[in-house]
Design a protein around this nucleic acid. Structure first.
Lengths: 110, 110
DNA sequence: GATTCGTATTCCTCACAAAGAATATGTAGG
DNA sequence: CCTACATATTCTTTGTGAGGAATACGAATC
């Protein structure tokens, strides 16, 4: 299983998250298609894709001189599992009254 | 709701993730307790806690000259929601399995 | 085999963020 | 008040990582 460290580090940059969202919308895409759909230039896209690939967040399928990238469920599942380990916390807030109290308390601090 | 950008950026550093894990294990903790339980020094812990607080990942409760920090479900839920938007991708890895054990997914988000 | 296209990689520079040190703020207790 | 303690904040230094330009690699086409 992909290490959560690599996955969360890779997701810590907005441009990489944007690439993932593009791949989610468009499905399998080549590098140049991603370049066209984003504000980035080709070398940056390739470099970000490399980081995402090392985190098992995307997978690649070479075909001719193109390389088709797609989302890889392994990295996404790793991240999801990391957050699920905190599930008790964010789930309990729906019926926790002290959450509301302390939140108001903090918002009154400048 | 906390912006997923802030949350995922905040989670992109290992030391901040470590603080969250410490708070999850120990429950509500003061800054000096977190300093003792980590390899960081007090100013760094305070600064990281500030970032986590701005992302709604932790909340603080002042008491005397101590400040008790604890996990905040809002930021965690924001991150979880971001990953859930990709749920179809990482879940599709288990499609074959789901057909065999179709009674396992009782959770459904409205 | 030369050329062209798609992509990856290297090198360089620069910005930003993290760590360190010192100091400020705030609170309890004498 | 003064001191001791807990935490936050500023300032500086340092280092990591993103972006740009140029180049290298690989595959298809001629």
């Amino acid at each position: 299983m992909a290490d959560a460290t690599f996955v969360l580090d890779a997701l810590g940059e907005a441009s990489r998250r944007h690439l993932l969202e593009l791949l989610h919308e468009r499905g399998e895409s080549t590098v140049s298609e991603l370049v066209g759909a984003s504000e980035m230039r080709q070398p940056q896209v390739s470099k970000h894709l490399k980081v995402l690939r090392e985190a098992s967040l995307v997978a690649v399928r070479p075909e001719g001189r193109h390389r088709y990238y797609r989302l890889d469920g392994r990295g996404l599942e790793t991240a999801h599992a990391w957050f699920s380990s905190f599930e008790d916390v964010w789930r309990s807030r729906f019926d926790a009254l002290d959450e509301l109290v302390s939140t108001n308390h903090e918002e009154h601090q400048p």
